[in-house]
Design a protein around this nucleic acid. Structure first.
Lengths: 161, 161
DNA sequence: CCAGACTGTCTTAGCGCTGAGCTAACAAGC
DNA sequence: GCTTGTTAGCTCAGCGCTAAGACAGTCTGG
């Protein structure tokens, strides 16, 4: 059984035998797996009226622990998107009453973004479903394989972050 | 040395000890690694006046071998984007003279998309740089680790495709 | 030979993100 | 008290993508 990327590597070996395309075996697969994961998890989020962007913000606030509040800057840093994107995400979440923005008393520039009760309830409801979806996406791998995969990806991530 | 995802897992363990968040160790890392890869490779593409979307189409045509021509449907299938996205990618590439669209003689609905000489030259020029970038992104891993990672990702991909 | 189903490609409104840049508030040195 | 530099957050035009569907060409059964 082979995947799409194996076919790509074969084609390159035939057309450009002078080049070493082996890095694609990892990079290409990471990209494709990531897209599949995103497509599947998006369906779970949608069942809760959410998308990846919204869930990402809500979950970041939720796992920060009480009082479930962070600055937009902190959210930007943990999110891999720009500050402009976070501003817009917060606009949407605030319009739905899932988060509130309050000026920070100690710094006139700062803002505290806090989960509302409704926002917290929603993310707590969506999270188990999301985890079940992720679990299903990994069903092909044993616990040992998952651990090995996580270790390798972590090493890579440390070198990239 | 730990990565961002390790911190996320710690937070969830503290806030929701009732849930098994272990799938995130893989899913979360795949997503973050993929984004880093995409950001880095984008810079290499940009040096050749390309982006990921354009390179993807040109490379697919290039590695198909002579006469470097495929249908929009074939490009859609290998790309993980919708047919509408491929139409637009082809519009941009055609406007730049990197591909040409020709009606397919044997089927009035069909179109052949072919690499121009200029398109072929461009992808052949960009490819070595792109591979060098990918190689650099994987520098933290040994050959054995890369092979192991590729194998695990391939097993996952087979189960998802 | 025609009706209906199917296939291949394109069109378009709407969405979320980026990149550039803006404003306001704070900090440090003189 | 100023000036200069930094930080926090936001705005907005433009981009590529998706989802939905339009439309022409091809196939199939009766």
């Amino acid at each position: 059984m082979t995947d799409h990327v194996a076919g790509v590597l074969d084609q390159w070996a035939r057309e450009r035998p002078d080049l070493d395309v082996s890095p694609m075996a990892v990079v290409g697969r990471v990209s494709r797996v990531s897209r599949r994961f995103a497509a599947e998890t998006a369906r779970t989020f949608a069942q809760h009226g959410l998308d990846h962007a919204s869930f990402d913000v809500l979950a970041t606030l939720r796992r920060a622990g009480p009082p479930y509040a962070l600055s937009p800057t902190a959210l930007t840093r943990s999110s891999m998107v720009t500050s402009g994107a976070i501003s817009q995400r917060l606009d949407r979440l605030e319009a739905r009453g899932l988060v509130v923005r309050r000026p920070r008393p100690t710094d006139g520039r700062g803002t505290d973004v806090a989960l509302t009760d409704e926002g917290k309830a929603l993310v707590d409801r969506a999270l188990p479903d999301h985890l079940a979806t992720e679990e299903r996406l990994l069903a092909a791998l044993s616990d040992e394989q998952r651990a090995e995969l996580a270790t390798l990806l972590s090493a890579l991530l440390v070198s990239l972050e």
